[in-house]
């Protein structure tokens, strides 16, 4: 069966189309003012990528903070449910799922069948999500990818005291004034962020294997800091930001339950 999943996130709207567990196409657009237009645009991109017509999709499930905006969805799932379904399909051996998105972080413990055992969420505070690293990259006047890369070359652990994105920006600026190397500041940013995510994950109990998903999983600097903090390696899929949409699509097709 061909099904689609849509993840209406805080920053991006992502659509994934699959057939019998095989990904046919994906589409992602930056969320702007007009949610309806963003949703349509993300669908158009995914259908173009898949090279199929819209009427071929038999079922559509929605997830994400704005899932209720998707009027023609057959059903909707919470992000936690969609994350668990997507990860269970990609990594059946995973027992812990960490999802770090632009505005929210989640840790989910799943059982052998991929069912959610319990979860913890960091929300409504930029310090616990991708918005934090974005703000720090801005303060350092470098693109986010660069922030991740130079973090890997850091030779010194510098503590970061601010636990707020706004205060963090000021702290980064004062570190720059104190002539702290940018790569060490980058690592400080990722270490601070990783500490917060790790302790959230500890509340559900970190059991291997651990899968890391969400847009922030593409930040190599953050991944390194998180692995150091968790003292284990995490599994990251190719398109970590599409896992929720994948989960929704699999749930729609009945492949995941």
């Amino acid at each position: 069966m061909i099904s689609a999943g849509i993840d209406v996130g805080a920053k991006n709207v992502k659509v994934l189309i699959q057939e019998d567990g095989k990904v046919l196409g994906k589409g992602s657009v930056l969320a702007g003012l007009d949610m309806g237009a963003d949703i349509k645009e993300a669908f158009d991109a995914a259908f173009k990528d898949a090279g199929i017509a819209r009427d071929k999709v038999e079922k559509l499930y929605a997830t994400g903070a704005g899932r209720n905006e998707v009027k023609d969805a057959d059903d909707s799932y919470t992000e936690v449910g969609a994350d668990a379904a997507g990860v269970a399909y990609l990594y059946p051996e995973a027992r812990t799922v960490i999802d770090v998105g632009a505005e929210e972080g989640r840790a989910i413990r799943v059982d052998e069948r991929g069912k959610v055992v319990d979860f913890a969420i960091n929300e409504r505070c930029a310090a616990g999500a991708g918005a934090f690293t974005e703000a720090m990259a801005r303060a350092l006047e470098m693109p986010l990818e660069e922030l991740g890369k130079i973090s890997l070359t850091s030779t010194k652990a510098v503590p970061m005291n601010a636990q707020c994105a706004v205060f963090g920006e000021s702290e980064v600026v004062s570190l720059i004034h104190q002539k702290t190397e940018k790569r060490d500041i980058a690592r400080a940013v990722h270490d601070a962020m990783a500490t917060r995510i790790t302790s959230m994950a500890r509340r559900v109990g970190v059991q291997p294997e651990v899968a890391l998903i969400g847009g922030v999983a593409k930040n190599v600097g953050f991944v390194e800091s998180l692995e150091r903090d968790l003292e284990l390696e995490v599994m990251i899929p190719d398109d970590p930001e599409f896992v929720s949409a994948l989960g929704a699509a699999l749930l729609a097709a009945g492949i995941a339950k």
Partner: peptide
């Protein structure tokens, strides 16, 4: 509605655009 200044700022930018 957002307490967080970062999120409140995006919310306010949206209101200004409206």
């Amino acid at each position: 509605s957002s307490t967080c200044v970062v999120f409140a700022k995006s919310e306010a930018s949206g209101l200004l655009r409206e």
